[in-house]
């Protein structure tokens, strides 16, 4: 079994919308995979099923050998400690500094202050925010806030980083910077990356595996940047 594996997965929302239909997908450990497609094709739904924010209606979703689809609610937190999540809207706490926004994850796990500090500094250094530890979110640019979000996602050294349109709110130059950070996490930490995006520039430049989704089904799966813009349309 692959590190991440979807087997015949359906997701039908309560309102009757079929967001994912009969999807099967395998992702190896350490891979970097883009998930692309039009708005409402089901990218976010796929990502959310990986960290059990949504439960598949049918089928199995394995992450690191665990069938997430069958996971009890009370055990979900254990799964999430192994998955870093990067959001389009960063989801930072406005009253906490960059340092505190990252540290509070480990605090809530019950870590010692002396264990927390080096890990937080390391994570913030990796995303290039060593100089901004004491800045509050409203004192930082969008790109910097996204870096804090990434630092928070990797501070516990997860095996997988899932990103849902991490550059969706950023200009092209800032997006490039963010992609460098994510790429370095993949290369240097060996973290498996699954990133939903509809930024075709980024996808074309990075030359990674590309999974194309169309109306909830996989319309194409391309190795190492072999995907062309017109093929998906």
């Amino acid at each position: 079994m692959s590190f991440i594996e979807l087997q015949d997965v359906y997701k039908i929302y309560k309102n009757g919308v079929t967001a994912i239909a009969d999807m099967s997908l395998k992702i190896k450990k350490g891979d970097f995979v883009f998930v692309i497609g039009h708005t409402a094709c089901g990218k976010s739904t796929l990502i959310k099923m990986l960290y059990r924010e949504e439960k598949p209606t049918k089928g199995n979703v394995f992450v690191g050998g665990v069938n997430v689809a069958k996971l009890k609610n009370s055990k979900v937190y254990k799964l999430r400690r192994k998955i870093g999540i990067v959001f389009q809207d960063y989801k930072l706490l406005p009253k906490l500094t960059a340092y505190e926004n990252v540290a509070f994850v480990l605090e809530s796990y019950g870590y010692k202050e002396s264990e927390i500090k080096p890990k937080v500094i390391e994570a913030l250094t990796r995303v290039g925010l060593k100089e901004k530890l004491r800045s509050f979110p409203d004192e930082m640019s969008g790109g910097e806030q996204q870096r804090v979000c990434i630092a928070r996602a990797i501070v516990n050294k997860p095996k997988v980083l899932v990103c849902d349109e991490p550059t969706g709110n950023l200009d092209p130059d800032t997006s490039k910077e963010i992609m460098k950070v994510i790429d370095s996490i993949n290369k240097e930490m060996g973290t498996t990356i699954i990133m939903a995006t509809h930024d075709r520039d980024i996808v074309n430049r990075m030359k990674k595996r590309v999974v194309v989704i169309k109306e909830g089904v996989i319309a194409g799966d391309y190795e190492k940047g072999s995907y062309k813009v017109d093929e998906a349309h």
Binding site: L79, K82, I85, K91, S108, Y109
Partner: peptide, 12 residues
Amino acid sequence: DIMRLVGTSNMV
């Protein structure tokens, strides 16, 4: 919401 997403236990 954030605590849930980052894997804070329910008890905490």
